[in-house]
Simulated assay, not measured.
Amino acid sequence: MAKPLVSDEVWAVVAPLLPSRPPRPKGGRPPVDDRAALTGILSVLRSGIPWEMPPREMGRGSGMTYWRRLRDWQATGVWEKLHRVLLDRLGETNAIDWSRAALDSSRVPAKRGP
Rank of each mutant, 00 (worst) to 15 (best):
P31H: 09
R46S: 15
D72K: 11
P55S: 05
A36E: 13
R29M: 04
A75C: 01
T65F: 02
D8R: 07
P22G: 09
G48N: 08
M53F: 13
V44I: 15
E92Y: 02
E52M: 01
P25A: 08
L90K: 06
V44Y: 09
A36I: 09
W67K: 10
R107K: 10
S99R: 11
W79A: 14
L45E: 04
P23I: 03
P114C: 15
R21H: 14
T93W: 01
V78E: 02
L45Q: 09
M1W: 09
R84S: 06
I49T: 09
S43P: 05
D72S: 12
G40E: 05
A2E: 14
H83G: 09
V6N: 11
N94S: 13
E52N: 02
P55A: 05
W11A: 05
E80C: 00
E57T: 12
R84M: 00
D72A: 15
T93C: 00
S43E: 15
D33V: 09
R100W: 07
R112T: 12
L45C: 11
W11G: 06
P19K: 08
L70N: 00
L42N: 07
V13Q: 06
L86P: 13
E57Y: 01
M53S: 14
S105T: 03
Q74W: 09
G63C: 07
I41R: 02
P30V: 06
L45W: 04
L42M: 15
R56N: 10
W11R: 05
M53R: 14
V32Y: 04
A12C: 07
A75Y: 00
R107M: 11
P22L: 10
P109I: 10
K26H: 15
K111E: 00
G40C: 05
T76C: 11
G91Q: 06
G91K: 01
L18W: 07
P54G: 01
R112N: 12
R84D: 08
P4N: 06
M58N: 11
A15R: 12
E57G: 07
E80Q: 01
G63S: 07
K81L: 13
K3P: 13
A36K: 07
A12Q: 08
P114M: 13
Y66L: 02
P25R: 05
S7P: 06
D104T: 11
E92N: 12
R107I: 01
K111N: 00
S7D: 07
V108S: 11
R68I: 12
K81V: 06
L82K: 03
G61L: 02
